[in-house]
Design a protein around this nucleic acid. Structure first.
Lengths: 150, 150
DNA sequence: TCACAATTCCCCACAATTACCCACCGTTGT
DNA sequence: ACAACGGTGGGTAATTGTGGGGAATTGTGA
């Protein structure tokens, strides 16, 4: 299982390609076949899964009931924004325009490893996210800690 | 097994033909023989199955009880609206007029891959569908993912 | 039975996008 | 100092999406 970590500030070129940092690539399993699936993340960012990790995720989606309307909705939103992309000769992947738009990504990106997936953020959006979280820090901490005790 | 994913905004020409996106075609098994079955989907959209997947579905339909009125109704709606169509030289299939009417499709369509089938929506109808969803993506995801752990 | 109209199918052509390739630095490590 | 690697940019050829023309097929009415 991959275990990505670290933050990297990279640029995205005008063809919508971003480089997967070498340090993250090292942790991609060979089973992934240099293939990644990009999809909408929680918050305003993108998730990138190596193929093997994505397959694992897909398995759990398949297990969902297609007669349950909520499950159907979840499947649709998750899958319909998903795009597969393979590394080019320079270890880059191309991100579809609609996903770039969703995450408000222009020329600079933050790429972070978060265990089994990689996140891509617009640096400004990430700052906003941090700021928003900070203001509710105590509140969240309280909830989390309470939950932890249960 | 096919695993379609992604959303594509395509146009339908005045002959009722839509292109199957290249990225989706990649996942159609060769057993499908470039043949697809189109039928009414859940919600206001069309489902397109590659032939091999359709055959699988037909097997499960055969298993349904023909003495159960609801099952009978389901079989009728599914089968009577079903149309087989083969890709033309440009990788397009022709959709029958009554199905286009059912899904309120005019000139623009959203084509999306949802695991084993492809869905075709009128973009406006899809927006309505999303809006009608009372709970948010994150909310549903939480429920779904919790269930996954069980 | 035949002729005509309408529809369907198969082919060709163009424009836009994408994928693949090569080239250029800056940095790192030896 | 030099070689190797990693990140960035761009050009070209192939693929993809879209539109339309003409032949074959179907259906209808005389």
């Amino acid at each position: 299982m991959s275990a990505f970590k670290g933050t990297y500030e990279y640029s995205i070129d005008n063809k919508g390609r971003i480089n997967i940092p070498a340090k993250l690539r090292k942790y991609v399993s060979p089973e992934a076949n240099d293939t990644f699936t990009i999809t909408r993340g929680f918050e305003k960012c993108l998730f990138i899964y190596p193929q093997d990790e994505w397959n694992r995720l897909e398995q759990s989606i398949r297990a969902l009931s297609s007669t349950n309307a909520k499950h159907r909705f979840f499947m649709r939103v998750l899958l319909q924004q998903a795009a597969e992309s393979q590394l080019d000769g320079q270890s880059r992947i191309t991100i579809p325009k609609d996903l770039l738009q969703f995450a408000a990504i222009e020329s600079e990106v933050l790429i972070m490893g978060v265990l089994e997936h990689i996140e891509v953020w617009n640096p400004d959006e990430y700052k906003k996210y941090l700021a928003a979280q900070e203001s509710s820090y105590e509140e969240v901490a309280e909830t989390v800690l309470q939950k932890k005790d249960v």
